[in-house]
Amino acid sequence: MSPKLIDTFWEFSNPTKFKRLARYVIPLSAGIALTCIVVGLIWGLFYTEPDYKQMETVKIIFLHVPAAFVAINTYLVMTIASLIWLIRRHYISLLAAKAAAPIGFMMTIITIITGSLWGSSTWGTFWVWDPRLTSFAILLCFYLGYIVLWSALNKLETASNVTSLFCILGSIFALLSRYIVFFIDQGLHQGPTLSLDEEKNIDNSYYFPLILSLIGFSALSIYLLFIRTITEINIHRISLVEKRGESGA
């Protein structure tokens, strides 16, 4: 990456420039999300053959895998945003991390609900303490902790450093627990659905709608992230104006 490109990236730490960027990103990501999710889901749900063993239940994959993908990557986004806040003190990145948490939380919930619906018909149980399921429960705990911390500390000045440190430490400890859970037992969840290795991949008839809905979910999360960040910026500005009014009076 050339230094010039990095400089343009840092320019978005200016709220006005960020809002200008958002004016392009929001409709674009909304469009991509809508088309990809609608096409991907309709293709996936109605125009693919049911699996010979799992029948129609296999089609829940088109919701489950993208939601899981977004849930994990949202935490990554939060960690990076918190790091940027701690190092460079751009408060937009802090607000973006705050805005991202509920999105990731909801995606984790969606993953768990779709997974347990699928599990109830295939494994015969809604929930087992399998490594993959356990690591999602752990991820859910860290999302909850982050949101609780924000709501408990309330003010931006006190909460900012604490929540970002919590987020960064949380990512380290969540990864640690994930590997330990995998060390303890292998479990019955199947391996990763998508991989760069051709032979391990799922069949092409499932692959393309899955990729479409994956792109759709990512675009959806970007759309939500931008909308929520803009809202947080506006809330922050209003509180600043109110404070100035109080001190002036």
């Binding site: 752990i138 705990c141 860290f142 902790g145 609780v148 911390l149 919590f166 430490l169 949380g170 400890f173 969540a174 640690l176 627990s177 330990i180 859970v181 303890i184």
Partner: peptide, 12 residues
Amino acid sequence: TITIPFYFPTLL
């Protein structure tokens, strides 16, 4: 409340 998630690795 917020310390408990950090105890998962050790506890497990």
